[in-house]
Each structure stands twice: as C-alpha cells, then as structure tokens.
C-alpha cells in the first residue's frame, strides 16, 4: 500500500470468518472484498450504483458494494456470493439458473443471485412482475432477463415445495 494513503483498521465478519484489516479510507467495499480478500465473485460494472454487479450482503441486507466504503463495514456482517454458495443459501437458485441457462457471460449473475435470494426471503411466491420489479436494479446485458425471471420463478416454486 502506498505510504501516504490514509487508512483505518476495521474488524468485521466476512462469510462467517472474523477479519481485521487496515484499509484505505477511500476503498469501496467491493474493491476491498475483491482485491484485498480475494473474493472476486462480486463484480464491478459501473461504480456508480446503477448495475448491481457489485451486490454484497451487509447485516442481512443486499447493498451496492460500490457505493459503500470498506470502512463503513466496520463491525458489520458481510456476505458475498462465495459465502452464500458455501452455506447453500442460494443453491436452489443456482440450480435453476443453471438449468434454465439464465446466464451467459455470468458477470451480472452473483449480484442477481443475492438480490433474488432477498426477494424470495420475504416474498416466497412472487409473480413475474414482482420478480422483474425486484431485479430492476440489476443490469444484465446478455440474457434479456426472461430466463432469469423464469429461473427465479422456478426456484420460488421448488423452495415452497
């Protein structure tokens, strides 16, 4: 790290593990998890809060990792797609995305999975319009979204069954 970079020490849990790190105060949360912790499943598509590729979960809520500073995660519980995968929390969604070919390049996918999981937690039986509305903060440039909507719908059904 550059010598005159202003830093702070933060402590938090990331994917269930305690982490203590000295971070530049201007580093975004998504850059920190990606480049300092090596959790590269969260992506950076715009850095201005429009695309949702940078989604991570902080204290149980999905946030834009590009609009939050790493230092703001001090004391927080952070979960990325890697953690959600390991815990199995998004496994049914992942199965349905896989089967329905709901991803092409995959760059948007981790952000969308976390957003869809949050939707299904509070709305177990969303209709297609509700799914589209819930994903209105995620850009997918490849699929045209329909396969994603159908995969989320299918996952909701399997989770209710």
């Amino acid at each position: 790290m550059t010598v005159d970079e202003e830093t702070l020490t933060i402590t938090c849990t990331v994917n269930g593990e305690a982490v203590r790190d000295v971070v530049p105060v201007r580093r975004s949360l998504v850059d920190w998890v990606r480049h300092d912790l090596g959790l590269t499943g969260s992506h950076v598509g715009c850095e201005h809060g429009v695309c949702g590729a940078c989604h991570v979960q902080v204290d149980g809520r999905v946030v834009r990792g590009c609009l939050m500073l790493a230092v703001q995660a001090d004391g927080a519980r952070v979960e990325t797609v890697e953690g959600a995968t390991r815990s199995g929390r998004v496994a049914v969604l992942q199965d349905c995305f896989f089967e329905r070919a709901a991803l092409q390049c995959g760059f948007c996918t981790p952000g969308i999975l976390l957003q869809a999981a949050e939707l299904l937690e509070h709305t177990p039986a969303p209709d297609r319009a509700e799914i589209r509305a819930a994903l209105s903060g995620n850009i997918c440039r490849c699929t045209g979204y329909q396969a994603i909507v159908e995969a989320v719908e299918e996952a909701a059904g399997r989770l209710r069954a």
Binding site: T40, G41, H43, V44, E82, T85, F97, L103, G106, T109
Partner: peptide, 14 residues
Amino acid sequence: TRRLLAGRGRYVDD
C-alpha cells in the same frame, strides 16, 4: 456456468 454461478469466474480484473 456452474462455476460462474458460484462466483468462480476468472475475468481479467479478478
């Protein structure tokens, strides 16, 4: 796509 779904893609900046 299993790999991409698990956040294990390898894009340039990764």
